[in-house]
């Protein structure tokens, strides 16, 4: 079983495959273009949010404001970006810069990220409520088209997930700057000694998180066609769970972008799978928790066996 320890990515892939097989077994009709699209449709924004969370976890921090931030972006997208695109784009850019600045401040003043992002979650939530006091707004037409496009053979949700995984893999694992960023999570002091400006690197990691958060909010509006201030609050916890499910760790810069996307897909599929099980809706949330625990237990079994070998 050295295989699993060597290739961190295997376990998330296997969990997703098992869950997918079980879903198809329960409901063979899901094994179609339309079925798969339906199963994974909502996974796209969750995958983007998970990648955003991963950027923060990569530098040893944790973001408790991500759900509120994605909600805010959704509100901006459904109002400003739809009514006056120029202003909308400017606001979204400003939000990304805010995130980068946040990263710099957290590092420069040595603040606990968990608390600062906690405070920011109120700020984002408040701004969202300010923009859209009651549910509403409308998705820009091009965004709607983009999210409901029907490519031949492979459903949009799968295409998008693959693209997100490949792009972030190239960015975080393959590129030079990605390696340095992971180094910040591994040992910030050595990176500093090696002559890198850690403040700027942290700002970059947070900025990337903000960028993917913006994408997540836009994708969400493209799917739901409207927004409200609480639309994505559960993304905070979902994204953390997705990163860990995908083989990431809270410390040491050990993250896997492909794993994070797969983790997000697994969490989304878990919800659909349970409805096929004809499980009472009461237990849907709980079963997501159970699946999370099961996968992590599996991971523990494999890593422990390797330690003994």
């Amino acid at each position: 079983m050295k295989l699993f320890a060597k290739y961190r990515i295997l376990l998330p892939v296997v969990s997703l495959a098992v869950l997918l097989a079980a879903t198809f077994y329960m409901q063979p009709r899901a094994m179609s273009y339309f079925g798969i699209n339906l199963l994974f449709n909502l996974a796209v924004p969750i995958a983007l949010a998970t990648v955003a969370q991963m950027m923060i976890i990569m530098v040893n921090d944790i973001d408790l404001s991500l759900g509120a931030f994605v909600s805010l972006v959704a509100c901006v997208t459904a109002t400003f970006l739809n009514d006056s695109p120029m202003l909308g784009v400017l606001i979204l850019l400003a939000l990304v810069l805010c995130y980068a600045a946040l990263g710099a401040v957290i590092h420069a003043l040595d603040l606990p990220a968990i608390v600062v992002t906690l405070g920011m979650s109120f700020v984002w939530g408040g701004l969202a409520l300010f923009i859209l006091p009651s549910p509403g707004g409308a998705s820009p037409g091009w965004l709607r088209t983009l999210m409901t496009v029907k490519p031949p053979y492979i459903p949009m949700a799968v295409c998008a997930s693959v693209i997100i995984a490949v792009v972030t893999h190239l960015l975080v694992i393959r590129s030079g700057i990605g390696t340095v960023l992971r180094g910040v999570g591994g040992n910030a002091r050595s990176v500093q000694r090696a002559g890198w400006p850690v403040v700027r690197l942290k700002a970059l990691a947070y900025g990337l998180a903000g960028l993917f958060g913006v994408f997540a909010g836009m994708a969400l509006v493209g799917l739901t066609t409207s927004a409200d201030a609480n639309i994505a609050l559960r993304y905070t916890l979902l994204s953390i769970a997705g990163v860990i499910l995908g083989g990431g760790e809270f410390t040491g810069g050990k993250v896997s972008p492909v794993g994070a996307v797969i983790g997000a897909l697994t969490l989304t599929l878990a919800a659909s799978f349970l409805s096929f099980l004809r499980l009472s809706p009461d237990w849907q949330i709980g079963a997501q928790g159970a699946i999370l625990i099961l996968v992590l237990t599996a991971r523990l079994l494999f890593t422990r066996r390797d330690a003994q070998a």
């Binding site: 916890l237 237990w283 949330i285 709980g286 997501q288």
Partner: peptide
């Protein structure tokens, strides 16, 4: 977090 999902259910 995972356990709380179970309690919630």
């Amino acid at each position: 977090l995972a356990a709380s999902l179970l309690y919630q259910s």
